[in-house]
Amino acid sequence: MTEKTPLLEVRNLWVKLPDEEDAIIRGLNLTIYPGEVHALMGPNGSGKSTLAKVLSGHPGYEVTDGEVLFRGENILELEPDDRARMGLFLAFQYPMEVPGVTIANFLRLAYQRRFDTEVKYTEFYKILLQHLKKLEMDPSFAGRPVNEGFSGGEKKRFEIVQLSLLEPVLSVLDETDSGLDIDALKIVSNGVNAMRSPERSFLVITHYQRILNYITPDYVHVMVEGRIVRSGGPELALQLEEKGYDWVRGELAGATAP
């Protein structure tokens, strides 16, 4: 294990919104090695989704301190598309609708960029259908506008179709489980599990322990007020489920009291 180099290393990360004083992420540290699945849990407003967006390069946030090393390279100055081409993937909590743009047209472009190749439309169509099938989505989705008119569950499933297609080395799943019924949750989890490999890592962001029954994490982190306050194995998620976030908050208050 020690011979491996980390896939992702977040060092003392501080993030705020451009027009606000208070930081959202306050000195966060996180290291993920290849092949690992990490769960990041925490209450609303703890900064989990902000972390996901900052990792992907969302332009709306300001990093005031710290580093994010991905595959050994500091990626904070890189455009979101550069990061994507390096194999970073964000499954969105709220996937965007893109009217008038078909899934096939969009993902063909994405595929060509990710793998730096040219692929004929007909050839790509076959590839896309395989991935749709894996997530039990009808082939007709290929011709539908991106996320437009999709149910919440379809949007989340489509995120995993993209994950499956683009073969990222690090996937950040931002509350992919929210709004999924149990069947959809199983389909999505199966899709993710099928992608697991010794090279590929996942950061699963969630409120609830439920998804972790299907995607078993190697590590669980608890994030409160912009930093990771506790890390452990899968049992930590179960403890949280049982005791609630106030338990961690209480410990935190005690630990950081002056």
């Binding site: 992907s56 964000l90 609708e97 893109v98 960029r113 683009l166």
Partner: peptide
């Protein structure tokens, strides 16, 4: 929308054009 498309590897102006 731009961010969404960019996060899939499309360049910014490519995303805008799409």
């Amino acid at each position: 929308q731009i961010f969404y498309l960019q996060s899939r590897g499309l360049k910014e102006d490519e995303a805008a054009a799409l």
